[in-house]
Design a protein around this nucleic acid. Structure first.
Lengths: 145, 145
DNA sequence: TTATAATATTAAAATGATTATAAGTCAAGA
DNA sequence: TCTTGACTTATAATCATTTTAATATTATAA
């Protein structure tokens, strides 16, 4: 879903589109690296010196509640955020902390409505390990010895 | 894996089994409700009035590092812990916060070693929604009106 | 447009989970 | 018994997030 579409959705819900809210959503649109609230705050502060952390969090919570973004709770203590709200899987590197989107074909949970009588509303799949880049780096370091 | 087996593993690794460490592991063994560190601390304090939060966290981190327990990072800000370290899926209720073990048949990720060139070490699947108990309660409340 | 009400943002303080620190305790081996 | 090292404790520190109260902005209606 592109930026304008999400903005239209917000407007349709009666949410006023403030400069700050637009900036946060646009930031996520342009930065698909799954940033944290702190990342967003740090970067937006350059353009909006008076923006506050509360606004970042309020906006992220708002966008999440309307299903326009996705929260990633793979790391202990801090959340990351993803512009792409559609159900998809994430790989998290234990070494470098990078988060990759991965496509898992044939996941029986995608599209499923209930499980064991529970109503499914959201799916979070975190695959944790060592990413290909870190594996390569490890390999190189071993060879150098 | 039962309690004695995990304790043997620890001993084999040269980890000294203190009363506190035993108590934490035993607590998880007996309480399969996926408690938080705070839950464990609160309950163990009754039997061990001088136990400290640091010990709870140290022990949980230690047990996790040796693959004897599993961390659940589905809730923003706080972790839950699971005696069962084998890969399995969790359902988290948005209403009551309860965490259920669920069995997903045919998950293509279970047992998989790599994905997109990344090395898989751990899998966390969180299915979020409204649990059957809360759904029932909702239904009853509607009928009463 | 202007006044008013409603909503959003800000800065700062508060909270809650987790980790770090430093001092104290304990057990095993010299 | 003394020493060493590992473990636990209490406390303080840190980090992410939320709350609060004041201010600013936006929407609404006259």
């Amino acid at each position: 879903m592109d930026l304008n579409e999400k903005i239209d959705r917000l407007k349709k819900e009666g949410i006023t589109l403030t400069i700050q809210r637009y900036a946060v959503l646009e930031y996520l649109y342009k930065n698909r690296t799954h940033p944290t609230a702190e990342d967003i705050y740090h970067d937006l502060k350059k353009r909006f010196p008076t923006i506050s952390q509360a606004t970042i969090y309020n906006t992220l919570n708002l966008l999440e509640n309307y299903g326009l973004i996705q929260e990633i709770t793979a790391e202990r203590g801090r959340s990351h955020f993803d512009y792409n709200a559609k159900p998809h899987h994430h790989f998290i590197c234990r070494k470098c902390g990078r988060i990759y989107d991965v496509d898992v074909k044939g996941c029986p949970l995608v599209g499923k409505k209930t499980i064991d009588g529970h109503k499914i509303e959201e799916l979070r799949v975190y695959i944790i390990g060592i990413c290909s880049e870190c594996l390569e780096k490890e390999g190189r370091e071993k060879n150098e010895k």
